[in-house]
């Protein structure tokens, strides 16, 4: 199925969960300092494995960058 991650279209296995998506994207899910929102709702780390994505899900993966 197709989803959007940080504005980019990605093709992933149907019903992939947030945790597995991070692994597919080569982002270590246990690293500190990242957060995920799906369809503008923040998904707590503890719910990543239980949160399955759907066709056209909009995923945002963010971290701290230099800012003022």
């Amino acid at each position: 199925m197709k989803i959007r991650v940080n504005g980019e279209e990605k093709t992933v296995h149907p019903n992939v969960n947030v945790y597995d998506l991070l692994i597919v994207l080569e982002l270590n899910p246990t690293q500190a300092g990242i957060a995920v929102a799906v369809d503008r709702e923040v998904i707590p780390k503890t719910a990543w494995q239980a949160t399955e994505l759907r066709e056209d899900s909009e995923v945002e993966i963010i971290r701290a960058v230099q800012g003022g």
């Binding site: 940080n6 080569e26 957060a35 993966i61 963010i62 701290a64 230099q66 800012g67």
Partner: peptide, 9 residues
């Protein structure tokens, strides 16, 4: 201070 931005793959 820091900003929150999209992870770059």
């Amino acid at each position: 201070t820091v900003s929150m931005r999209r992870v770059k793959f």
